[in-house]
Design a protein around this nucleic acid. Structure first.
Lengths: 198, 198
DNA sequence: TCCTTTAGTGGACGATCGTTCGCTAAAAGA
DNA sequence: TCTTTTAGCGAACGATCGTCCACTAAAGGA
């Protein structure tokens, strides 16, 4: 019955991965142990055991989803030069992520942000960190581009506009079924950048 | 025990109003009959009775929230001239709505859109209608402004940008606790408009 | 005044929720 | 080889979920 230590680690990862999928559709508070256990062919106790309780699993799901966002949006541009070139690469990967999402129901970060923003606790704190770190990262590359003389305008304005364009596109894709929304957002974001060039 | 017919109508409205408040914080799927009934000093059966079942109540909650959005954002500009003036008035009311929301947890439409976009059914359909009607309304006044020669650019681009700025501001206010976000969004939206004037 | 209608109560229903605990059996160390 | 550790199972727990139904009592029409 018992598995070796690194098989146990694989089990952990399988649970979290399945949890991310279920949460993407049903929400983090729609992540229930019964259906999750059944989809994994495990018992409820076996599913929640490695994380202590349900909230521990939810926290791990948030962390994993954040890692998947990073892998899809940030990492592809890791070798691109900082500042404006990196910003352009980030926009491309971001819009690609919106269209061909690693989650079954679009941007997990946007969904979890809306779901958790009125419910104090460790989950909300974790999402606060994820969002503010991402926005800070975006802002950093905007200021680098400005220091290089490649960009004008208020960095916070651009962060809000780019972030907003992504959130709007996510709504257009997921709720309204607009398949062109990602390309649309990509064009809008690049136009905003172009307009702010000296 | 029994109330008169229009007192029954008042009861209906009290239930829906309390449902909107609970859903704003806990989500539409976090709208549970037990706590709702207790907050109203009623029995569970009395709360759900007028709506048939829980989903009927949820639908009524969505409709009421949409009406509250309309009352807060659209109606204040009802007497303003169509096109660009109306667009400017809409932006002001919209950002005022984001800051001093009639809901306890920020923009109900954004939250419900994210919660429902992956869950087929009448609730999702209702939210689809609400969002696409609002975007259509926005787009209409943009095209009116363009026909009057007051505005340039693609109407859909502007709809996405304005909508995105509002969603981003909602996140900044509700998740990140940025109290200046509404004014920030107002400035961004007006700047976008100004930039598109001939 | 009597009768029908109906808003709302209260309790019970089976289902499902997250959690707990004793147990099994294989891995890892002695 | 013998012992300890631990991944995961299976059953049970009390709580809460949405729904249902018999009942009460006041409103409104005859």
């Amino acid at each position: 019955m018992r598995k070796s230590a690194d098989e146990a680690q694989q089990t952990r990862e399988r649970i979290v991965a399945a949890g991310v999928m279920q949460s993407s559709v049903e929400g983090l508070f729609g992540l229930t142990l019964g259906p999750l256990a059944e989809s994994l062919g495990m018992s409820k106790a076996g599913v929640v055991g490695p994380f202590g309780n349900r909230e521990g699993l939810q926290l791990e799901v948030v962390r994993q989803a954040a890692d998947m966002f990073t892998a899809a949006v940030i990492e592809p541009s890791a070798t691109t030069a900082d500042g404006l070139p990196r910003l352009r690469a980030l926009i491309d990967a971001w819009c690609e992520y919106l269209e061909a999402s690693p989650f079954p129901n679009g941007c997990f970060v946007t969904a979890a942000s809306c779901e958790l923003d009125g419910r104090p606790g460790p989950l909300r704190d974790a999402m606060h960190d994820v969002v503010s770190r991402w926005r800070g990262f975006l802002r950093e590359h905007i200021t680098i581009a400005q220091a290089a003389g490649d960009l004008r305008g208020d960095p916070d304005d651009l962060v809000s506009i780019l972030n907003g364009a992504a959130m709007s596109a996510n709504q257009e894709i997921q709720l309204l079924g607009d398949h062109a929304a990602a390309k649309h957002a990509r064009r809008i974001m690049h136009a905003c950048i172009a307009q702010l060039q000296p």
